[in-house]
């Protein structure tokens, strides 16, 4: 018996058929037919929604490949001919921006941010998951509480601090804070560490291993999936982030790809949508590829944080 919810798609007429012999509220003779019909409707909705969800991506790539003239054709064409691959080159070069630098900058910020947040958060998470000390649980509540704090509150003082110490227009404000652990990742890793049997630590401790050793040689190797999840989430976060780089980075040579795309329209009197979409595709593609190869980790990470919250 499937556990379908009663959806609007359930035809009311079937309920009127209600003859006396009933199974689970449905007339017995029509139950098989009804189930088949329901499955059909479920699949129809799934396919329809799937198409709708995928359509913006298709539209993005289709526009990115259009010659200028076709962008303005009404009705719009989904499959432009010819495909103008040059749009991708134009999108990255037309403004004369050093896009290769933006790629490099984004990668440097993302990779250093990821390494720092994974190392520091796992260290902190180990302390919260495995060691007993007074005030631990209260401090963990503070960790969770900071997730509630809007970035707007700390943004202005941090900006002024970095201005004073000469960090503005460098990558440091975008990287260094992440070397001190991030609440979300501490939380995620702690949840994962709690699932690792304590007997493993105890055995190592009897053999004379220190906590640092247990952390490094036992917990971390067993936590590769969780660490990968953290790395992916952090990478995507840095890759997509707009607000903080917008505030911190001013000179063009320090820009990230997100800043480049954000400024793209401003530089053109008439937005050239095919080039904009080509640039968007370039920004989106690495994340999509990353996602396709690491889907399971993404999903596990979300489940880990979402369920026991």
């Amino acid at each position: 018996m499937t556990t379908l919810p009663e959806s609007e798609a359930t035809p009311r007429a079937f309920r009127r058929l209600a003859s006396v012999p009933r199974v689970h509220g449905w007339p017995a003779q029509s139950i098989r037919f009804t189930n088949a019909l329901r499955r059909l409707i479920t699949y129809l909705i799934l396919v329809l929604l799937g198409v709708i969800m995928a359509l913006p991506f298709v539209w993005m790539v289709s526009t990115a490949l259009k010659p200028d003239a076709l962008v303005f054709s009404i009705p719009p064409e989904f499959f432009p001919r010819p495909w103008v691959w040059r749009n991708f080159i134009d999108a990255l070069t037309i403004l004369g921006h050093p896009v290769h630098l933006y790629v490099w900058n984004t990668l440097v910020i993302a990779v250093l941010g990821v390494v720092g947040v994974a190392l520091s958060s796992s260290l902190v998470a180990f302390g919260f998951a495995r060691l007993e000390f007074p005030g631990r649980d209260k401090l963990f509540v503070v960790v969770l509480g900071t997730m509630m704090l809007p970035f707007a509150v700390t943004m202005v003082p941090q900006f002024i601090l970095y201005q004073r110490i000469g960090w503005l227009d460098t990558f440091l404000p975008l990287i260094v804070p992440y070397w001190f652990g991030a609440p979300f990742h501490i939380f995620l890793l702690r949840q994962f560490f709690l699932t690792i049997p304590r007997e493993l630590d105890e055995a190592a401790r009897i053999d004379g291993a220190s906590n640092l050793r247990i952390y490094w040689n036992i917990i971390l190797p067993l936590s590769r999936p969780a660490l990968a999840t953290v790395a992916i989430f952090a990478f995507v976060y840095h890759w997509n982030d707009l607000l903080w780089p917008l505030i911190v980075l001013s000179s063009q040579k320090n820009w990230t790809l997100a800043l480049f795309l954000a400024s793209f329209q401003g530089y053109m009197q008439q937005p050239r949508w095919n080039l904009l979409m080509a640039a968007s595709t370039v920004l989106v593609l690495p994340v999509l590829i990353l996602f396709f190869f690491t889907q399971k980790l993404f999903i596990r990470g979300i489940v880990l944080t979402g369920l026991k919250g």
């Binding site: 929604l49 799937g50 969800m53 995928a54 913006p56 991506f57 539209w59 993005m60 995507v236 890759w239 997509n240 982030d241 707009l242 997100a258 795309l261 954000a262 793209f264 329209q265 904009l276 979409m277 640039a279 968007s280 920004l283 989106v284 994340v287 999509l288 996602f291 993404f298 999903i299």
Partner: peptide, 15 residues
């Protein structure tokens, strides 16, 4: 269904 959530950010807004 999940794909759009990964790419959120500037690209989604422009798109």
């Amino acid at each position: 269904f999940y794909l759009p959530a990964v790419v959120s950010g500037v690209a989604v807004a422009v798109l």
